[in-house]
């Protein structure tokens, strides 16, 4: 979002985002890759990436000369990874709905995008391939969780029910964390006769960082879905700040307690269902839970949207 005069100057120089340009202002010369502007900062500063990799803003003033030098290298994407069939591993289905866990950073602009293909998730967590076999990947929509509506819950419930009635051991749903506990509660009520585990999982740190927490969460969620005997909808996320284990928290009892901490989800008036370790160990913490069975699941998605909360 450059100012109109900068837009005009860039246009008359024939410079497009991604081009290598030279900006000359008096005796000062700057060269770098032309980048788009975020909504913050000074719209009359031209943002370039220097050859050192650093970005800086160069103020455009009358008399500043912009020259387009050449086109820069194409910005890459994650190569989507095809899941390999490993008959020895337990099969699960994965439903991708969006959120930080499935986001991708444009390393040039810093912009965050949703992974377009769910296969890209596998690229972020290659360990998954040795833990479970992803039988199917479904992606009804990819949105940030604050944009989800009750209609979306219905759609997720219907897809999940369908998947649960196949030969998979359980279902993993990737989801943004802001409203994950709403979806987990909704699914808990909508999925009737539940006989297999359903794990909701997300991330508090984005996959561009070395400290991405989503990989361990996803791995633990897959173990919960494939290996536990708990036939309940649960949120499977970090149990503590350390990368040691996850808690599986009953879908109707979970609450997000902090905007950014890894261990944000806590059970309210309840014990976590289990502690799940990334190496596949599952330690039951709550004796009262619904056991895995063989009943057919159905989605009861009748939902009254005209509801208001009155807080006294």
């Amino acid at each position: 979002m450059y100012s109109p005069e900068v837009e005009k100057a860039l246009e008359s120089a024939g410079a497009h985002i991604g081009d290598i340009i030279r900006i000359q202002r008096g005796s000062e010369v700057y060269e770098g890759i032309l980048l788009p502007r975020s909504e913050y900062g000074d719209p009359s500063c031209i943002v370039i990436k220097l050859s050192s990799g650093y970005n800086i803003g160069v103020k455009y003033t009358p008399g500043t000369v912009i020259k387009r030098l050449r086109k820069a290298a194409e910005v890459g994407k994650f190569p989507a990874k095809k899941a390999e069939r490993k008959p020895s591993l337990p099969p699960v289905s994965l439903i991708a709905t969006g959120g930080t866990i499935g986001s991708r950073v444009d390393y040039v602009t810093g912009g965050v995008y949703m992974c377009v293909k769910p296969e890209e998730l596998l690229y972020l967590t290659p360990e998954l391939e040795d833990a479970v076999y992803i039988e199917r990947m479904r992606s009804p929509f990819l949105v940030a969780s604050e944009d989800l509506t009750p209609d979306d819950w219905k759609e997720i419930a219907e897809i999940a029910a369908k998947e649960l009635n196949t030969d998979v051991r359980g279902v993993v749903i990737t989801h943004g964390t802001d409203t994950m506990h709403y979806t987990s509660a909704a699914l808990s009520f909508m999925l009737r006769n539940l006989s297999k585990p359903v794990a909701l999982v997300g991330a508090q740190r984005s996959p561009d960082r070395g400290s991405f927490d989503g990989a361990m969460n996803l791995l633990c969620a897959a173990h919960y879905a494939a290996r536990s005997d708990i036939a309940e909808v649960a949120i499977v996320m970090h149990g503590e700040s350390s990368d040691t284990y996850c808690y599986a928290i009953r879908g109707t009892k979970a609450r997000k307690m902090h905007t950014s901490r890894r261990d944000t989800f806590r059970p309210i008036n309840d014990l976590p269902l289990a502690r799940v370790w990334p190496d596949g160990r599952i330690e039951a913490l709550n004796t009262k839970y619904r056991k895995r069975g063989s009943s057919e699941v159905y989605a009861d998605t009748a939902f009254e949207k005209r509801v208001a909360i009155v807080k006294a």
């Binding site: 890459g76 070395g210 350390s242 990368d243």
Partner: peptide, 20 residues
């Protein structure tokens, strides 16, 4: 004490940085 692991990340050209 906090215990963490770090992961190789995917660089801007879609490849893992070799030092990472």
């Amino acid at each position: 004490e906090i215990i963490r692991k770090l992961r190789a990340v995917y660089g801007e050209l879609g490849v893992v940085d070799r030092a990472a």
